[in-house]
Design a binder for these strands. Structure first.
Length: 425
RNA sequence: GGAGAGUUGCCGGAGUGGCCGAACGGGUUCGCCUGCUAAGCGAAUGUUCAGGGUAAACCUGGACCGGGGGUUCGAAUCCCCCACUCUCCGCCA
């Protein structure tokens, strides 16, 4: 949620920045809502002020043992009016809020303009992509080695689920442990959050109200819960409605969780293999910082993610997403893309974003500035995958493939694989 | 799932239906004192919305004592529903 004040003080520039990301702000609807809201507030507060005054008079008359019946009459007479105003107020307020909640974040000035991923900007590349004459994809390699079983997963659950076996399962587990260990050294504190969250949490990070179709929804009691699509949701909501101390910032957390995505809008894409699954593991980094520290925190966090790729000897590039390709809540996003020999291209393996105060505003997340400044300000939230484990698995299998179909594992991973250097038949 | 006890400001903890936005204590900040520290003394210390003033300070009004309803002229205080926490019982990995 954007600060409503920017629609009063900096309306034109904000509209332009939203247009940059292809969101058309409905100016007249907003202005109508603003006027109606202000009037409703003033009407209601005026009535309440009157009521409070009379109540005060009743009290002092009672103390003086005087007659109060005329005041009581007056008070009763206005109560209906007040109830009416309250209803108007409630309706307007919720309309006003839902209008705001559907507006995406504005892009940072450094974000390149453009509508599609073709306009993303390459910031850097690392490593030398392997170009093979006859590359096999992770499906052929995995099935052949007996470490990946898609057919049985389909039997158990359905499409877009996988079973990992033997060294494949071990590799998945090793990757999670390896990544977490590195991020502990990077200064993140590990968290294991719930994998089911309530609707408020989903609203807080911006998945709701717009993207419910992408989520798995689970009935629970009178209400329902959602399976997390990323650890971003529970971790960012950790401090909801709290005021942190400036001295304890930045707060950095990492978490390994399963992620569940319904991917309702992606039926045609990546139908084969485990690139796009309904369930996958991911190590997520989340940072909470002051405004002035946020830009460099995004760089730091992205570098922490890149560090994993480098330690795993996987060629990648860093892309700065253009305005049209950014997520709803994002202020600025870098994607890391890993080289996949079978596709002869780079594929997304991490997304690192800075949200400004967009999420903090929805979540009620602030920090208390130290005197003499004083006062509370919204925190800046950031997060990034570091990394998506399923796709890392794919990248390791494909990049490590040998002519004989075996997989040479990155050196950094060997200790986590019980000394195993190569996956063979 | 059953029974009971709770939920108040940064923290602890009072609060008879009416100057209670909330006693008291602690913490924190500022000042005084002090060779330094501690102690002591004095003062300050909520959020948010609307309006006025705007560089700010500030002023006026509304709301907020877990959340939502209700009773009442008036609710932190009474009633109902819900959530959460704690203790005991049951069940369970």
């Amino acid at each position: 949620m954007l600060d409503p004040h920017v629609f009063r003080d900096q309306l034109d520039i904000t509209i332009q920045r939203l247009r940059d990301r292809y969101f058309e702000f409905d100016r007249s609807a907003w202005s109508a809502l603003e006027i109606a809201r202000r009037k409703a507030i003033q009407d209601l507060e005026g009535l309440k002020a009157d009521r409070n005054k009379i109540t005060d008079q009743i009290r002092s008359r009672k103390q003086a043992q005087e007659n109060t019946s005329d005041l009581l009459e007056k008070q009763k007479a206005s109560s209906e009016n007040l109830a009416q105003c309250e209803k108007v107020m409630r309706d307007i307020e919720s309309e006003w809020e839902s209008f705001l909640s559907l507006i995406p974040n504005v892009p940072h000035v450094s974000v390149p303009l453009g509508q599609t991923s073709g306009n993303n900007q390459e910031i850097k590349t690392w490593g030398t992509p392997r170009v093979l004459d006859h590359p096999q994809d992770h499906i052929d390699l995995g099935v052949h080695l007996g470490i990946l079983d898609l057919e049985r997963a389909t039997k158990i659950t359905g499409s877009r689920f996988a079973v990992l076996k033997g060294a494949g399962a071990q590799l998945e587990r090793a990757l999670g442990a390896f990544m977490l260990d590195i991020h502990l050294k990077h200064g993140y504190s590990e968290v294991i959050p719930p994998y089911l969250v309530n609707p408020e949490s989903m609203y807080g990070t911006g998945q709701l109200p717009k993207f419910e179709n992408d989520l798995f929804k689970v009935p629970h009691g009178e209400s329902h819960l959602y399976l997390i699509p990323t650890a971003e949701v529970p971790i960012t909501n950790l401090y909801r409605d709290e005021i942190l101390k400036e001295t304890e910032l930045p707060v950095r957390h990492c978490a390994l969780t399963p992620c569940f995505r319904s991917e309702a809008g992606s039926y045609g894409k990546d139908t084969k293999g485990i690139i796009r699954q309904h369930q996958f593991h991911k190590v997520e980094l989340v940072s909470f910082t002051r405004e002035e520290d946020a830009p460099q925190e995004l760089e730091r966090l992205t570098e922490n993610a890149e560090n994993i790729l480098e330690m795993l000897e996987l060629p990648y590039r860093r892309m700065l997403l253009c305005t049209g390709d950014m997520g709803f809540s994002s202020h600025k996003t870098y994607d890391l893309e890993v080289w996949l020999p079978s596709q002869q291209t780079y594929r997304e393996i991490s997304s690192c974003s800075w949200f400004g105060t967009f999420q903090a505003r929805r979540i009620g997340l602030k920090y208390r500035t130290s005197p003499p400044k004083g006062g509370n300000r919204h925190l800046h939230t950031l997060n990034g995958s570091a990394l998506a484990i399923g796709r890392t698995w794919v990248a390791i299998i494909e990049n490590g493939q040998q002519a004989d179909g075996s997989i040479v594992l990155p050196k950094a991973l060997v200790p986590y694989m019980g000394g195993l250097e190569r996956i063979t038949l």
